[in-house]
Amino acid sequence: EETYEVDGEEQLKKVEKMLRDRNLDVEVEIHNGKFVIRAK
């Protein structure tokens, strides 16, 4: 499992696309105004 923490939606979209391109399962949560992306 990998976890990424990003600020802002633009970064979120980039990271999310990169992970989905690797066929990973992606979950996004918001913690303290930051996006936390978990990939399995």
Rank of each mutant, 00 (worst) to 15 (best):
L12E: 02
N32V: 03
D7K: 07
K17R: 10
K17N: 06
K14M: 13
D21P: 00
R20K: 09
L12W: 08
V6H: 03
L24A: 04
A39C: 15
N32K: 06
L12K: 08
K14D: 07
Q11M: 13
H31K: 13
E10G: 04
Q11P: 03
F35L: 09
L24W: 11
G33E: 00
I30C: 14
F35H: 02
H31A: 09
D25E: 14
R20W: 07
K40Y: 12
V15S: 00
Q11K: 07
E9N: 07
R20T: 05
V36E: 01
N23A: 06
E27L: 12
V6G: 04
E2F: 14
E1Q: 11
T3A: 09
I30W: 14
T3F: 13
E9G: 06
F35E: 00
R20P: 01
N32T: 01
E16F: 15
V28K: 00
E2Y: 13
E5D: 04
V26F: 15
K17P: 00
R20S: 05
K14V: 11
T3H: 09
D7Q: 10
F35R: 03
N32W: 02
V26E: 02
E16T: 15
V6E: 02
I37T: 02
E5R: 09
Y4R: 02
E1A: 11
K13D: 05
E10V: 08
L19G: 01
Y4S: 01
Y4W: 13
I30R: 09
K34M: 10
T3Y: 14
V26D: 02
D25P: 04
V26N: 02
V26M: 10
E5S: 08
Q11V: 09
E1N: 10
Q11W: 12
K14L: 13
T3I: 15
K34R: 13
E2N: 06
A39K: 03
D21V: 07
E2L: 13
R20C: 12
V28M: 04
G8Y: 07
E29K: 08
E1G: 11
H31I: 15
L12A: 14
K40G: 04
H31L: 13
L24D: 01
E16Q: 14
V36F: 12
V28C: 15
D7Y: 14
K13H: 11
K13Q: 10
E16C: 15
N23G: 15
V36L: 13
A39Y: 11
Q11I: 08
E9L: 14
I30E: 10
G33I: 02
E10A: 09
M18C: 15
L24S: 01
R22Q: 06
K14R: 12
L19F: 12
E27S: 13
K34Q: 05
K34T: 05
R38S: 04
E10S: 07
L24M: 14
A39L: 11
E27P: 00
D25M: 13
E16M: 15
I30L: 09
K34E: 02
L19A: 02
D21S: 12
G8I: 06
V6Q: 02
I30Y: 14
V28R: 00
N32S: 03
R22D: 02
D25R: 12
N23H: 12
V26S: 03
V6A: 08
K17W: 03
G8R: 06
E29A: 09
Q11N: 10
E2I: 13
D25H: 14
D21E: 12
R22M: 10
E10Q: 07
D25A: 11
K17S: 08
V36S: 02
T3S: 09
A39T: 10
N23C: 15
D21F: 11
K17A: 11
I30N: 08
Q11F: 10
D25K: 12
I37C: 11
V28S: 02
L12S: 06
R22N: 05
D21Q: 09
E10L: 07
K17H: 05
Y4H: 04
G8M: 07
E2W: 15
E16W: 15
V36K: 07
V28W: 07
M18P: 00
N32G: 10
V28I: 13
V36M: 08
N23D: 10
G33V: 01
E16I: 15
K40P: 04
V26Y: 15
E27M: 12
E5N: 06
E27T: 14
